[in-house]
Design a protein around this nucleic acid. Structure first.
Lengths: 227, 227
DNA sequence: GCCGTCTTTGACGCAACCCTGACGCGCCCG
DNA sequence: CGGGCGCGTCAGGGTTGCGTCAAAGACGGC
């Protein structure tokens, strides 16, 4: 299921978008100002953001920058401004597309499909979705972890953390980066969260949780997943 | 260098695009019909395609399908048609963006930058920066050091120091500069820190730590990393 | 409205890291 | 020939960071 975050301060536009998107089986969140948008994006991790530039509390471009600080989620900008400069500024700040109001719903939906399609896993063949270690198997597509023939139950946060680590398999992931990707952009210092959840992951997946072979701590820097 | 393939049958538009793109140091190929476009795309592997839909020999959407059969290169469609159906068809066929003529050059270039930026890490980007010596290997992206098949554990400060030296491989790095980059801007005279940590790096990485071959001291000036 | 699960927060012991000072050595210069 | 400077080495102590446990708070389902 594709999750969309709609950000606009005009209720009728939000309503129209929400109705049309839900009818096409998208999962939709809505925000009416920039602060809510950033919070919702961090909490819900949408697959695409539809963003009106004319927000009451902050400049739309600032919202784009706020998102781009920690995520590459596609951003589709809506705006009543036709000026070329506005478009250039928004696109260069990190937006993926720019649609001027009034817009045709069919076109918007097509652009949204294009943005989502593009963001899908690269490469036509799905080969790296499953990662295996000597003790357990992670299926990134199915969001499943198997160990000794049985599925392991992970909480959302545990899974999210595991996913980030596995996607960077072999590479060191800094604690700040982990916190931002899992808990949201405003988290960067709460390293105790990491300690707690790394311990839970190790307890569920490692053969000997107190001597981990796959979830390795690099003191002072971050964590690393090794096959 | 970013390579762009421009496809349009109107010579003045091609000329305008080529001039503007070359002025911004893009590498540009041009085609005036669909067959040439497909051939050039296969031969030159552009990083982005700018495609006019009104071609003399074949339907523009067919060109999109022809490209999408084997590549995910970003496609930016140009068209004189404002109809919503046309846009939807092109986008659903695999186009990444749709700009109607007449278009502003600034906007087009911004959309082009957005398309290229988006494709960068997934496409041809090599992110593994690996430096090898006869005795050990440094992977700057993964923050990993390998020696004789085994990973070497470095503390944050050791790694930081190593990173600065390796990034300036072959060049002399002054002690003041090293201190500032690793310990912070207020440090500049504590050369004893350097001595201690250089010794640890050499002990962990050099074959004969007391006669270093890669971490070379330039007395009174600084240190140099040699492969 | 209650209950179970997940998340957040705090406290504690322990290990690792960073800083510091002392000492020896080689080189340059007086 | 002797002194000084800069560099390499070593070991100890203060501090930070990590793992672990437990309990309170938030959230959602029945």
């Amino acid at each position: 299921m594709t999750r969309v975050l709609v950000v606009d301060d005009e209720p009728q536009i939000v309503r129209a978008l929400v109705i049309n998107l839900r009818a096409r089986t998208y999962e939709v969140d809505a925000a009416h100002d920039g602060a809510t948008a950033l919070r919702l994006a961090a909490a819900r991790h949408p697959d695409v953001v539809v963003l009106d530039l004319g927000l009451p509390d902050m400049d739309g471009v600032e919202v784009i920058r706020g998102l781009r600080g920690w995520t590459r989620v596609p951003i589709l900008v809506l705006s009543a401004r036709h000026s070329s400069d506005e478009k250039v500024e928004a696109l260069d700040a990190g937006a993926d597309d720019y649609v001027t109001k009034p817009f045709g719903m069919d076109e918007l939906l097509a652009r949204l499909r294009a943005a989502v399609r593009r963001a899908e896993p690269a490469g036509g063949g799905e080969d790296d979705v499953i990662v295996e270690t000597g003790e357990f198997t992670v299926d990134l597509a199915a969001k499943k972890v198997n160990r000794a023939g049985k599925d392991v139950r992970l909480t959302p946060t545990e899974w999210h953390l595991l996913e980030v680590l596995v996607r960077n398999s072999g590479r060191l992931v800094g604690q700040k980066q982990l916190l931002r990707e899992v808990w949201g952009p405003s988290y960067g210092t709460e390293t105790n969260y990491l300690r707690v959840y790394m311990a839970q992951l190790r307890r569920k997946l490692e053969a000997d949780p107190s001597h981990p072979k796959h979830f390795i701590t690099e003191p002072g820097m971050g964590y690393r997943f090794e096959k």
